[in-house]
């Protein structure tokens, strides 16, 4: 089976992140860049499925030139090859434009299953799998905590707030995963060395038949008008127990809709 994993390079969510003063897009230069955490889980799942069923894992990344660092790192986990979509015109693209570009790239690849993280730690939109599925006319199941593939049937345990749902679709399909699905492997030195030699194919917009006036900041469907740093955290509520502490706690939790 052929699996494509969508991989995104994001600013490290463990550090202070900000937007650029000039065009209000994510300030990627100021940040330490890394692979979106959930994508590691998507790669791990793809590798497991490929190991169990035979097959090939291809990474697909849309991002600036320096996203090659993330692609190499992702390849060192074990995937066979990668496709890098990069074009200056893509800067500031919204989720809808991104889905158009990735759909076009997926159109050029052979696949039975597309896996991706349930969200990226920078955008956090969560809608990309649905958008891709719509454009490609395939099924999308999002938020998986377990994926099994038997023949063309893809069965997914979809994580919800209360528990999980079991959903089934016929492949080809797009599945997004949460971190509960697996524990990503650490790359071995052998794979690190091999990653350097694995093929990475580059596509520009023109190769995908997408025009520059369909993407980028100027054509984005949403726009950041202004931004401000998060206000500092307020001091919490202190409840002193004078015989009715329990009741007061419940009252507080109820008022904040925790219970």
């Amino acid at each position: 089976m052929k699996i494509v994993v969508l991989v995104k390079q994001v600013p490290d969510s463990g550090e202070e992140r900000t937007l650029r003063a000039d065009d209000k897009t994510v300030d990627r230069d100021a940040a330490t860049k890394r692979m979106n955490e959930l994508d590691e889980h998507a790669i791990e799942e793809a590798l497991k499925l490929a190991e169990a069923n035979g097959g090939e894992v291809t990474l697909l990344t849309m991002g600036p030139g320096d996203a090659t660092d993330t692609i190499r790192k992702a390849l060192s986990m074990g995937p066979d090859k990668a496709v890098h979509v990069s074009d200056d015109a893509l800067h500031g693209s919204c989720a809808i434009a991104t889905s158009k570009v990735l759909a076009a790239a997926l159109g050029k690849l052979e696949w039975d299953l597309v896996l991706c993280g349930a969200e990226s730690t920078d955008g956090g939109v969560q809608a990309l799998p649905h958008m891709l599925a719509e454009r490609l006319g395939v099924g999308a199941v999002t938020g998986a905590r377990k994926v099994t593939v038997e023949g063309a049937t893809v069965t997914v345990e979809r994580q919800t707030d209360e528990g999980y749902e079991v959903l089934q679709t016929e492949g080809p399909a797009i599945v997004s995963v949460w971190d509960t699905i697996n524990e990503p492997r650490y790359p071995s030195f052998k794979l690190i060395m091999a990653a350097k030699k694995k093929p990475v194919e580059s596509f520009a917009l023109a190769d995908l038949g997408v025009s520059a006036d369909e993407v980028g900041l100027a054509n984005a469907t949403s726009q950041v008008l202004e931004f401000a740093p998060k206000p500092p955290r307020q001091a919490g509520v202190k409840i002193t127990d004078e015989g009715e502490g329990g009741a007061k706690l419940v009252e507080y939790l109820a008022s904040e809709k925790f219970v």
């Binding site: 492997r185 650490y186 790359p187 071995s188 030195f189 052998k190 060395m193």
Partner: peptide
């Protein structure tokens, strides 16, 4: 887990199960 990462095989050739490092 260190074993799974191949750390114990780092300086040994692949023919003996090493990492070829």
């Amino acid at each position: 887990q260190m074993g799974q990462m191949g750390l114990f095989g780092l300086p040994f050739p692949e023919e003996y199960g090493g990492m070829g490092g």
